[in-house]
Design a protein around this nucleic acid. Structure first.
Length: 478
RNA sequence: CGGGGUAUAGCGCAGAUGGUAGCGCGCUGCGUUCGGGACGCAGAGGCCUUGAGUUCAAAUCUCAAUACUCCGACCA
């Protein structure tokens, strides 16, 4: 293959310029495209298919734990948004407004939802009467708009697709349990289905959601050592309930305020997949969400029987895998490269030589390891290889994270580490926002979260020297 | 929103000192190929981002705008 040919579909080497590599993947693997609306991106069929798989798998998890889907309005009257002070202050800088209806100026302008807590609360106030109605566990799949200043496909765009769960409960304990169990659900999904190890923990006061009492997150580490907040779960206490007058008659016949949660993941997960698993050849998709799990490439497709056999194998695999035959006119080599770039986990080659031997060639995307498999053994071999690939993706990501995680006990150490490779830096912390801000100023780090799995690294905060309360993981974030 | 960079065919680029556009890949058709990015022949495809200047003449010079992109601050 000549240099010239390679240039055509070449992507920037991952270790040369990671951000450029990322953009190349988004465009060249045909996941996304820019639109003529500034900051808004288009999800192309291949990218949207990944999202569809994510939705399907997560939706099943939500349903299995008693959640119901609803659809809330796109627009929020300003008066409604104003009801919870912290919330409106947090979101005001990035909301888009609708001020006209047709040619009429609106008396109460409407905000395009940046998130739907206010609408859910308004609705809960209407439909909640008795403790017998609780819990209400709702979810919606929708898009939201936040007027971001800088945008990047999947990581930050002015409109993004997501899922937002909103629940209300009779007791604080129950709401807290919901907050935690949804975070666990996200973590499990990321680790099992997306093969991305995540760090579960509580956000600091500075980083928590506007209006929440507590915010929990799962943090994933990308190939370049930067962190990506990949899911959040919030506990609201009864703050929103009080602000919106959501009440119910309790078991003791008194009026009470329910306790509330909300939680969400977005198409940002696709960004996480790209940046966690990809390599110089392109994308590598976790089998659970890959739109195509096995691509069949016929070799010498013009020879009698080859295409027929390819089609026969497709039918055979279709009962247990998402499979596609590439019968285009391109050369086999071109197809290999193309489907590798698109991250298809497994390639099946079938040519005249294989047909003689009643076998085919299976090639893993992650290791490029080839195996010759008899047709009769495909039902076993394909799932086994997909599983092995998934495990390897997870292990590689976990290894990268382990390699890039350090601990520090003094500010000098933090600064020295922060000046080197990107990664997680664990330190103790006194709990003061001032010290968190100092981390940002002196080392360029933000707190990712306070992991559930705490360690005692020292007795004092490296910033101020006062007694330490918790261990925090710091890093640079997307 | 601050600081850089870029804008010419679908993509990647060339187009010194001004004279109305070219290359590679891709695309279309036909034929030969096919186990790691095949080849031949014949085609199609451009308001040179937009708007103002300067000039006989602007892709080229000047100034603005816009978009994308990278680096910071802010956020899923």
């Amino acid at each position: 293959m000549s240099e010239n040919k390679k240039l055509v579909e070449a992507i920037t080497p991952i270790n040369e310029d990671f951000t450029q590599w990322y953009t190349d993947i988004c465009l060249k693997a045909e996941l996304a495209d820019y639109s003529s609306v500034k900051g808004f991106v288009i999800l192309r069929p291949y990218g949207y298919a990944i999202w569809e798989n994510i939705m399907r798998l997560m939706d099943a998890r939500f349903k299995a734990t008693g959640h119901e889907n609803v659809s809330m309005p796109l627009l929020i009257p300003e008066s409604l948004l104003q009801k919870e002070k912290d919330h409106v202050e947090g979101f005001a800088p990035e909301v888009a407004w609708v001020t006209m209806g047709g040619s009429e100026l609106l008396e109460d302008r409407l905000c395009v939802r940046p998130t739907s807590e206010t609408l859910f609360c308004d609705h809960f106030a209407h439909v909640l009467h008795s403790y017998r109605d609780l819990p209400m566990k709702y979810n919606q799949w929708c898009s939201v708009v936040r007027w971001e200043k800088t945008t990047r496909p999947f990581l930050r765009s002015r409109e993004f697709l997501w899922q937002e769960g909103h629940t209300i409960h009779e007791t604080a304990e129950e709401a807290i349990a919901e907050t935690e169990s949804q975070l666990e659900e996200y973590a499990d999904f990321c680790e099992k289905d997306l093969c991305i190890p995540v760090l579960k923990g509580k956000k600091t006061e500075k980083e928590k959601f506007a209006g929440a009492e507590a915010t929990y997150s799962i943090e994933a580490m990308m190939h370049d050592g930067k962190a990506l907040q990949s899911g959040t779960s919030h506990y609201f206490g009864d703050g929103f309930s009080r602000a919106f007058g959501v009440q119910f008659t309790g078991r003791d016949n008194t009026l009470q305020y329910p306790f509330q949660t909300s939680w969400g993941v977005s198409t940002r997960l696709i960004g996480a997949i790209i940046m966690t698993h990809g390599d110089d050849e392109g994308l590598i998709l976790p089998p659970a969400v890959a739109p195509v799990q096995v691509v069949i490439v016929p070799v010498a497709a013009h020879k009698p029987g080859v295409l027929e056999k390819a089609e026969e194998l497709r039918t055979r695999l279709a009962s247990f895998a998402r499979v596609k035959v590439d019968a285009s006119d391109n050369s086999p080599g071109w197809k290999f490269a193309q489907w590798e770039m698109k991250g298809v986990p497994l390639r099946l080659e079938i040519g005249p030589k294989d047909i003689e031997k009643e076998q085919c060639v299976l090639v893993r995307r992650d290791t490029r390891e080839k195996s010759f498999v008899k047709w009769d053994e495909l039902e076993k071999a394909v799932p086994a290889l997909l599983d092995a690939l998934a495990k390897n993706l997870y292990d590689r990501a976990a290894e990268n994270r382990a390699k890039r995680t350090w601990t520090a006990t003094t500010m000098e150490e933090v600064q020295r580490l922060a000046a080197g490779e990107n990664g997680y830096i664990k330190t103790m912390w006194c709990g003061e926002t001032a010290c968190e801000e100092m981390m940002k100023e002196k080392a360029g780090l933000s707190s990712r979260n306070m992991p559930f799995e705490q360690e005692t690294l020292s007795d004092v905060c490296p910033c101020c020297g006062r007694p330490a309360k918790t261990m925090v993981v710091w890093g640079k974030a997307y």
